[in-house]
């Protein structure tokens, strides 16, 4: 089913680094203890349903990505797990207890979507203060080093660049030496270089078997860091698995062909998830390539420049969140 028809020219598009998946195989521990959990959780804000019945388990040692577009409910899920919000219905537990208990909080670090911390305090001072909240924190020097802040340690927060400020928020999350680290949209607003550098810092920090819950709407970020991806949309979990599984299960293949067939006609075919016109060509996302290719060739014998490739995570995500119009 999944094998490529080798007679056709083939453009691999799913060539993104497999490092996360490999690391996942080494790290993932299905029998790991559950450290954080949502059970049948609903959360309403007035008439807005942010979460509509979500079950989520975070296991010790895994890097879990909550992936979804803005407004999907990711940040609400994090807010509930951190005890900032109370569920409308359902249960939330963190280290087997109440998320807002001190016993749970001393084991957690969080990088949240905040606009800043007091501008007049120096980076080192912020870290010294935050470290004092925890029973066994990292040394300030170590936290500075992990977040690449050593050089600006004595600069007031208000004088830092945007990227440096983001790294201070990261350092504040890890200085408590947490077992469980929450990263809520950690690289929003960073350029590509800064984002990749940040992933390296996260990898360095989590290498020693820490548990991480990451929310992101950057697919590449989930792919680069996570062992397991939970795709969230409109307040519900719509897919779950390793990055490789999410890709293969949901998106199948990307088909490229120059054809006289209309976009709508192709979209109506079975197994077709989405169709985009690209000049004379159609870019087709299909759950299974073979029956679609067969059908295309039957309908348009003049079809040419046919290419079939693996779909990237981005395609999978699009396919999942823009459900095919019936």
């Amino acid at each position: 089913m999944e094998s490529e028809p080798i007679t056709l020219p083939f453009t691999p598009t799913g060539q993104r680094a497999m490092s996360a998946a490999h690391r996942g195989a080494a790290r993932a521990n299905p029998a790991g203890r559950i450290v954080a959990e949502l059970r049948g959780v609903r959360k309403h804000y007035g008439t807005v349903q942010a979460l509509r019945g979500v079950d989520l388990q975070v296991r010790s040692g895994e890097v879990l990505a909550l992936l979804g577009p803005n407004g999907a409910g990711k940040t609400t899920a994090v807010g509930l797990l951190l005890g900032l919000l109370k569920p409308t219905a359902g249960e939330v537990s963190l280290f087997g207890g109440d998320p807002s208990s001190t016993a749970a909080k001393v084991r957690v670090g969080a990088m949240l979507q905040i606009s800043g911390v007091p501008a007049t305090l120096k980076v080192r001072e912020h870290l010294e203060l935050f470290a004092s909240y925890y029973p066994a924190p990292l040394s300030v020097a170590r936290a500075l080093e992990l977040a690449d802040l050593t050089e600006v340690a004595d600069r007031p927060y208000g004088k830092l660049s945007g990227g440096q400020k983001q790294r201070v928020h990261f350092a504040l999350a890890l200085v408590g030496n947490p077992d469980l680290l929450f990263l809520d949209e950690p690289t929003t607003g960073l350029d590509v270089g800064a984002r990749r550098a940040f992933w390296e810092q996260v990898r360095d920090f989590i290498g020693s078997g820490r548990t991480v819950v990451l929310t992101t709407h950057y697919l590449e970020e989930a792919d680069a860091l996570a062992d397991r991806i939970v795709v969230v949309d409109h307040g519900a979990v719509i897919a779950e698995g390793t990055p490789a599984e999410v890709k293969s299960r949901t998106a199948g293949r990307r088909i490229h062909a120059v054809t006289s067939l209309g976009r709508d006609e192709v979209l109506a075919l079975e197994n077709v998830v989405s169709v985009e016109r690209n000049g004379a060509a159609l870019e087709i996302l299909a759950s299974h390539a073979e029956p679609v290719v067969l059908e295309l060739l039957q309908r348009d014998p003049a079809l040419r420049d046919l290419e079939v490739g693996g779909a990237g995570l981005e395609d999978a995500f699009l396919a999942l969140t823009n459900r095919p119009q019936a």
């Binding site: 005890g83 001190t102 969080a110 905040i114 606009s115 911390v117 909240y133």
Partner: peptide
């Protein structure tokens, strides 16, 4: 101001009493 910034939220998530 500290509520607006989110600084208060970060403190509430931390184990600071």
């Amino acid at each position: 101001g500290e509520r607006g910034q989110g600084w208060m939220m970060l403190k509430r998530v931390s184990p600071m009493p």
